[in-house]
Amino acid sequence: MTPLLLIPLLMPFAVPAVARRCLDRLVPVTALWALTLAVVVLAGASVAALGALLLTGLLKLPLFAGLGDLIHPLRTASDLVVLPAAAAATGALTIGAWTLGRSALRQLRAFRTARTQADSRPAAGDLCVIESPHPDAYALPGRPRRIVVTTAMLRSLGPDEREALFAHERAHNAGGHHRFLVAAELAAHCHPGLRPVRATIALAAERAADEAAAVAVGDRRLIARAIARAALATRASRSARPDFAPAATTGPVPQRVAALLAAPPRHPRAASWIALLLAVCATLSAGASAAGVLAFHHEVEVAQGEEPR
C-alpha cells in the first residue's frame, strides 16, 4: 500500500468549501461545468483508490494470492495497516454501492411517474399542466422534453411571471442540466466528502437557468420576482406540514433571488484563481490515485514473477 492513495481519499473533504466559492465567483454555467467535472474526477479517483486498497488486502490472503497467480508474497506495508485498510475500503465501497442503488431506484421511479404523467395527455407546445392544489414546477428531460407545471403554480403567478418560469425550465432542458445533477448524485455516493457538493451543483444549475431565463425575457428583476412568488406560494400551501428541513443556513431560493436582484456580476480576477484551485485539487487527486494504482499494479506483477524487483 502506498501513502499516495490517501490523497484521493482525503482531498474530497477539502472540496465543498472550494466549491461554494467557485459558485460565488464564477459565471453560473461555468461553475456548473467546473464543479461537475471536478466531482466526477474526484469520485473516480476515490473509488479507484478504495479499489486498490481492497485488492491489496485480498491478495494478502492465501486463497486470493493463489487465484492471482502470486508466486512471491505481495510487498506491502505491515499487515496491521493493510488488512484494516482493506476492510474499511470494503465497507466504504459496499455502503456507497448500497446507497447509490437505493437512490437510483428512487430517482428512476420518480422519473417514470413524472414521465407517465406528462405523456398521458397531449401537451400544448412543451407545456404539460397537472391539475393539483400544490404549486410545483419542474423540467422533465427525455423525449420529448417537457415543462411540467401544476395548475396551482400557474394561478399563483402573473402572466409575465409565468413566462419567467417557462424560460427558466426551458433553460434547464436546453442546457441538459439533469445530466449534471445525475453526475453530482453519483459522486455523492462515491465519497462522503462530495455529498455537500451535490447541493452546490444543484444550486449552480438553478443559477445557470435563472441567468439564461433573465437573458431570454430581458429582465432579471422579473425572474427574481417569479422565483420568490413561486417559493412563497409553495410554502403557503404546505404550512400545515411539519418542517423537517432545519433552518441552519440560508436556503437556495433566497440566494438565487438575491443574486438576480444584485447587479449583474462582474468577473473579477479571483474567479480564475478559485477555478485553478479546483482544477489543482482534481488533478492532484487523479494523479495520486493513478500513481498509487500503477504502483500497486507493479507490485502485483513483481509478486507474479513477471517483473524484477
Binding site: A110, D136, L140, E206
Partner: peptide, 30 residues
C-alpha cells in the same frame, strides 16, 4: 414533499421559515 429526487430540477426548493422571512424582505426591497 421531500427533495429527494435531485435529478428532477424543481423550480423552487423547500423554504425554511428563515428563508420565507428573507424572501419577503427581498421582494419588498425589490
Amino acid at each position: 414533499d421531500d427533495d429527494r429526487e435531485t435529478a428532477l430540477a424543481r423550480f423552487v426548493a423547500q423554504l425554511s421559515p428563515d428563508d420565507e422571512r428573507l424572501l419577503r424582505d427581498l421582494l419588498e426591497s425589490g
